[in-house]
Structures are given as C-alpha cells and as structure tokens.
C-alpha cells in the first residue's frame, strides 16, 4: 500500500515539474539572436533596394526574414524617445533600418554622433519592402 502511494507521488511530482518546465520554456523561449546569427547576405544598400524594386517577390524569397549586412551612406536619421532609424542610400528609395535598443545602449556615443552622409555598416533582420519606407530592416546592430 505504502509503496504504491510512493510511486504515484513520485510520478505526480515529476509530472508537475515537467509541466512547469514546459510552460516556463514556452514563455521564456529566447528571442532570435540577430546579433550573432550567421549572415545570409552582405550587400550594398543601393543594391539591396534595386533588387527589391526590380522584383519584390524575388527580393522577399531571397532576403525576407533573413539576417543581412548592409552598408551605405546615411541619407536620413531620425531619433525619438523610442527608437533610432537610419535610412541608407536615399530617403525614399533606400534601406530603412531600425536600430535594436541594445545596440543603442552599447554604442551610445557613436549613435549620437551619427549624421547624414556618414558611411555605416549594419546587420539586421530584413522585414520586406514598403512603398514609403523602401527596404525595411529591424533589430539592427552596428557593425562599424
């Protein structure tokens, strides 16, 4: 009788831990590590824009949701309370990159010093092509 109860108790306890562990994992699964993910492509900002504007679908299947590295001249930079956005190549026909908050904190002085016409290299997740913003990259990290 006692042995029987013990086994049930052990199973129950193990079950509870496994269940709690699964729930904990689901809610705390790490976000995609864009900073350290292997690069799918390294490309000039103006080239990336023209690939997308020539054929958006082909652009999406090549670059969509991939981590890519782009370099180019800063055409526009906008800073507000929530984010820093850098547009490379051209304000309307370029690559719009939203910096990740971690990179802003880690490179505070550098991000503050950035201005139009500076050349920069960024690494980020390619979200696609927008008629107003151009190619959009989010969670961008400063490479140099």
């Amino acid at each position: 009788m006692k042995k029987w109860l013990k086994i049930i108790l052990i199973i129950a306890v193990v079950g509870i831990f496994a269940g709690a562990g699964t729930v904990y994992y689901i809610f705390n699964m790490p976000h995609r590590d864009v900073e350290h993910e292997k690069l799918a492509y390294t490309i000039e900002a103006s080239m990336l824009y023209s690939e997308y504007s020539n054929n958006e679908e082909a652009g999406n299947s090549k670059f969509g949701n991939k981590v890519i590295q782009v370099s180019g001249k800063i055409a526009e930079i906008s800073r507000d309370a929530y984010q820093v956005s850098i547009t490379l190549a051209d304000p309307m026909e370029g690559v719009n990159c939203a910096l990740d908050s971690i990179t802003i904190v880690d490179n505070k002085a550098f991000v503050e010093s950035l201005k139009e016409n500076d050349t920069i290299t960024l690494k980020g997740k390619c979200d696609g092509f927008d008629m107003i913003m151009g190619v959009v990259l989010t969670r961008c990290y400063i490479v140099k």
């Binding site: 969509g64 939203a98 979200d127 927008d130 959009v136 989010t138």
Partner: peptide
C-alpha cells in the same frame, strides 16, 4: 514601430503601410 504613412491635408487622402514582420 515601423509604420509609414502619408496624409494629404488638402484632400484628406491617407495611406498607411507596414510590414507585419516588424
């Protein structure tokens, strides 16, 4: 936070667009 929009204040025309992956 990456939503773009243009508004024409003469006609009231509005366009807004975003990429859902953002």
């Amino acid at each position: 936070r990456k939503v773009a929009s243009v508004i024409n204040v003469e006609t009231g025309d509005v366009v807004a667009s975003t990429l859902v992956r953002s």
